[in-house]
Structure formats: C-alpha cells, structure tokens
Amino acid sequence: MRDVLLVAAKDLRIERRSRIGTAQVLPFALLVLLLFAFALDPDRGLLEAATPGLFWVTVLFSAVLALQRNFGIEAEDGIIDALRLCGMAPSSIYFGKVLALVVQLFALEFVLVIAVAVFYNLEFNGIPLLVVISLAATLGIAATGSIYGALSARLRSRDTLLPLLMLPLLAPVLISATRGSEIALRGEVGTGWSWAALLGLFASTYLIVGAVLFSPLLEDA
C-alpha cells in the first residue's frame, strides 16, 4: 500500500506541476460539451435525452488524453528502466497509476457535472446512484486505460494507438454508465443499481487483470 500511495502521489504532483489537466484536458472537455450544446440546442428534448451519453463520451475522450500524458512521462528519460530496477512490485505501480488517474478523472467529472448543469440546464435526481456510477465507471476507465497505457508507453505511435486499443474495450463502461445515469436522472433509482453493479464487476475484473498483466507489460514496455 505504501508503494501504491507513493506512485499515486508522484503522478498527482507531476500533474499539478505540469498543469496539463487544468490547462489542456479540462478546457478540451468543456469545449466538447459546449459544442454538443450548440449542435443540439434547437432540439432541447434531444439534448436532454442525450446528456448522459454526451457526458460519458466526453469523459472517455478526456481520459485518453490524461492517459497519454500519464504514461508518456514514464517513457521519458529511461524512467521505465528505473521503475524496473527500483524493486517496487509492478502491481503496486499499476494500482498507484490507477489511483492517480481516478482522482484526476473524478475531479474532471465534478467540473463537467457543473458545466452540464449550466450549459444544458439539467436538473439532477438520484444523486447517490450517480455518484456510485461515476466512481465505478471511472475506476473501470482507469483500470483498463492503465493496462493499455503501459502497453503503448514506448511506442512511437502511442498517441493514435491508445484510443484505438482502449475505446472499443470501454464500450461496456460507456453503455452501462450512460444507461445508469439516464435512469438516475429520471429518478427511477431502483433499476439503476444493476447498471452500477455491472460497472463494479467490470472495474474489479480489469483491476485484477491489470495487476496480473502489468509485470509482463512493464518488461516489454
């Protein structure tokens, strides 16, 4: 656990110092939401119905940017070799990177929720379910993304390869998070918990897969 927190704290410190998240990823996400609002504004009903999907698509695209940065820093200046030499368990490095990404994405989602309320004039119902869905979906995105981030870290084509590898695999997260959020926003919380459970199952599975696979991925990176 000590190494997990060490890696997560290091990643968050680098993020705070470089301000890529606040200066690039967040403005990008807000711009996407704003463009959707402009595009669908004539049809307020369609915009309202599409909001959960637009929100999670925006989060997914932003996660790709955050992941490219998150693993790009490990590919610079031989850092991956240094990580292999330092004696930390690869699974600790994986969980640390997932934790840092979850914190960043959760902060991003918080700002995006405020933006959705402002741009789309949306009322929020079923907030506890929305929070659980956000947490489980974010964990799933971070767990999956960190596996593919490590896989593509040293590739010259990683910027284009990462979304190609990652986005198809995250389709179940996108669908479950969108359906669950729709139900929560309609105030029909009861059936929404099954989508939250599905998201939790997906996240748990990928966390286990990531913990097992990260060692060979680090060797090949």
């Binding site: 290091k10 680098i14 470089s18 610079e76 070799d81 240094a82």
Partner: peptide, 11 residues
Amino acid sequence: LGHETFLYEDL
C-alpha cells in the same frame, strides 16, 4: 547510471 537521466523533469 545510463545515458538517460532516470529523473522526472517536472519534479
């Protein structure tokens, strides 16, 4: 100690 620094530039 290699040719690369093994250091995080933003830290």
